[in-house]
């Protein structure tokens, strides 16, 4: 009985060994195989970035939605009295101070936890909403869009900054460049729905921290990579609060 075992160096194997090829042929074959492997690795990279990361983000969105609802149930909401801004006009009666305005404030979300939902009705991908987690580490942004800590919470005075992927991990901000001035952006938190209107779109360097700085009124700044499939620059969308639980109080403050 003939055994077709896997041992090396058998007479059969030696007989099957092809004759030694010339150096140019061997170099050509090596170059060919190298290109084949490089092509396979590149295709794998593209498939990983486009599909596997998006699948991962979609899976996480379901979990984050449950986490967000639980977080809202635990969030405590308080009203804080704030003195309206000084108008600069002389006040003849020192005792006649304007009454304070009351701002609704929610407790700070836990780091890395989902606490908000961002919706952009004019962008199909974001029409149903995308969860926002607290934090902008690499791990945070793999699961959703991330709110930059130390910036204002959505719906509060100041500048709330939210970052998100453009071409990978679900591509939440893929079509952010299509937003026009006046388009609405809704951010839902435990307080309610805060509606912002787009005011301007900028392209800046990744180190341009000035776009995250606080400013009078209530603003929302969305940042993502630009151009698509490149991390060379940042696309920045600046929007102003136009409706929501704190809108009137913030108007009176400023």
């Amino acid at each position: 009985m003939t055994e077709s075992t896997d041992t090396t160096g058998t007479p059969d194997d030696e007989a099957a060994t092809p004759p030694r090829r010339s150096l140019p042929v061997r170099i050509g074959r090596a170059a060919g195989w190298t290109l084949v492997w490089l092509g396979a690795l590149t295709l794998g990279f593209v498939a990983h970035q486009l599909w596997i990361t998006s699948w991962y983000a979609q899976q996480n969105q379901h979990e984050l939605a449950q986490e967000r609802v639980a977080q809202w149930a635990e969030t405590s909401i308080t009203e804080v009295a704030v003195q309206p801004a000084d108008t600069g006009e002389p006040n003849e009666d020192p005792g006649d101070t304007p009454p304070p305005v009351y701002l609704k404030v929610e407790s700070a979300p836990e780091l890395h936890a989902a606490f908000a939902l961002i919706r952009i009705p004019s962008i199909e991908r974001l029409a149903d909403g995308w969860n926002v987690v607290e934090g902008v580490t690499r791990a945070d942004l793999k699961t959703g869009t991330g709110h930059m800590p130390d910036t204002a919470l959505p719906g509060q005075p100041g500048n709330a900054v939210i970052s998100g992927h453009r071409t990978t991990y679900g591509q939440p901000f893929h079509e952010l460049d299509q937003l026009q001035p006046g388009d609405l952006i809704e951010v839902e938190t435990a307080l309610g729905t805060h509606v912002y209107a787009v005011r301007e779109t900028l392209v800046v360097a990744p180190t341009e921290l000035s776009v995250t700085e606080p400013k009078p009124g209530a603003w929302l700044t969305l940042t993502t990579c630009h151009p698509k499939f490149s991390a060379r620059q940042r696309l920045v969308v600046v929007a102003e609060l136009v409706a929501g639980p704190n809108f009137e109080a913030i108007q009176e403050m400023s």
Binding site: L41, H48, I52, G146, H165, T224, C225
Partner: peptide
Amino acid sequence: GLHFFYDWLGTIVFDTGGTVG
């Protein structure tokens, strides 16, 4: 190993997540 390599490469080359600073 390829997954982690691609993930690292993607966040360097393609898309960092859009953070500023």
